[in-house]
Each structure stands twice: as C-alpha cells, then as structure tokens.
C-alpha cells in the first residue's frame, strides 16, 4: 500500500529519508507545494492529510502509508477553482505567489479547526463550542504561514469573505 495523493494511490519511496514534501515535488512533480525553509518555520509546504493541515517538510513520506494527502493541485483545477482560490485572486492575496498554495491549504485546514471548536491563543472562551471567525482568530491561526511580499491584508480578506459568513452563522446557531 502506498500513500493516496489527490485521490491517486502512489508508491512510497525506497529511501526512508525522503520527506513528504520532496516526494510531492521531486517524485510526483506536484510542485504546487512549496519549499521555503525545509525546517517547519514558514508554512509554504502546508498540505492536508485526512483533512488536517501539516507541514510536509517535517513529515517523512513513509510515515503516511495509507493516508490521504490533498495538495493545492487537489483543491481545484483550471476550470473549477476552489472558492478560496478565487477569493485570493479577487482580493490580491498574493504577490509573487510562492507562499500562496501553503496559505490556501492552511486556511482550508484552519477553518475545519474553527468548526470543531479548537481554541487558539486569542480565543476568549476556551469552553465555547463555536468560535467566531474574527480577524483576530484568523490572524492568529494563520501566523504559521509566512508571506514576505506582504499580502497579509488580502489573504485575510479572502479567507474572511470565503468563510466569514459561514462560521458566524454557525456561531449564532
């Protein structure tokens, strides 16, 4: 059994040193997942594993046997962009585009964490079951994804537009 990448079963590498990131980029030519530091400090390599966001540079590929990995290539395609991808374009949530796939994958995983009521450093009520999708929460939860061009405002606008109404509704219920 291999690792499932964007729905396709892929063979695990022979070399146990290969990170999940390098398997994606060099082995599968899925270069949408970016290498910014290879040390878990920048977030550019963020992918979703069974829906949870992880740093693929800190993951050995062989650890993910049987797991389902979704990369930026699996989120949307040319004909049908993910709503968040479209919002990034509308709100200019990037400049060079290098941290962008990581930001988008991270935001998709982050929203699931909010929906599950996982608190963050800025959550006022740790016992709350629904956490409002406030700018403070979004900024705190996205701070592991660095952007050097300075597209932070656009990224927040894109995430808030895509998910803001939804989580506010959940909070109200």
């Amino acid at each position: 059994m291999g690792v499932i990448v964007n729905g396709t079963d892929v063979e695990l590498p022979d070399d146990p040193r290969v990170s999940l990131l390098d398997l994606l980029r060099e082995g599968l030519h899925l270069s949408g997942t970016k290498k910014g530091c290879d040390q878990g400090a920048c977030g550019a390599c963020t992918v979703l594993v069974d829906g949870q966001r992880i740093l693929s540079c800190l993951a050995l590929a062989v650890q993910y046997e049987g797991r389902s990995v979704t990369t930026i290539e699996g989120l949307g395609d040319e004909g049908a962009l993910h709503p968040l991808q479209q919002a990034f374009i509308e709100h200019d949530g990037f400049q060079c585009g290098y941290c962008t796939p990581g930001q988008i994958c991270s935001a998709v995983g982050m929203i699931e964490e909010l929906r599950r009521g996982v608190p963050s450093h800025v959550t006022a009520d740790l016992a709350a079951t629904a956490i409002p999708c406030s700018r403070d929460e979004l900024r705190e939860r996205m701070s592991g994804n660095l952007c050097r061009c300075g597209a932070h405002n656009g990224i927040m606008d894109a995430i808030a537009e895509t998910y803001g109404a939804e989580t506010h509704r959940e909070a109200a219920e």
């Binding site: 980029r25 030519h29 270069s31 949408g32 997942t33 970016k34 290498k35 990369t71 930026i72 290539e73 949307g76 395609d77 040319e78 962009l81 991808q85 479209q86 990034f88 374009i89 509308e90 200019d92 990037f94 585009g97 290098y98 962008t100 796939p101 988008i104």
Partner: peptide, 21 residues
Amino acid sequence: VSRVDGPLKVRGAAPFAAEVA
C-alpha cells in the same frame, strides 16, 4: 485589474526555478 497570472499562482501552477524537471 486582477493579476493575469493569478489563476496560475493560486493553483501552484506557476513554474519556479527549482520546479523545472
């Protein structure tokens, strides 16, 4: 005007130097 290369960049499909095989 939104960036003409936006759709490429948000899909991770813009090729950077270390991504040419």
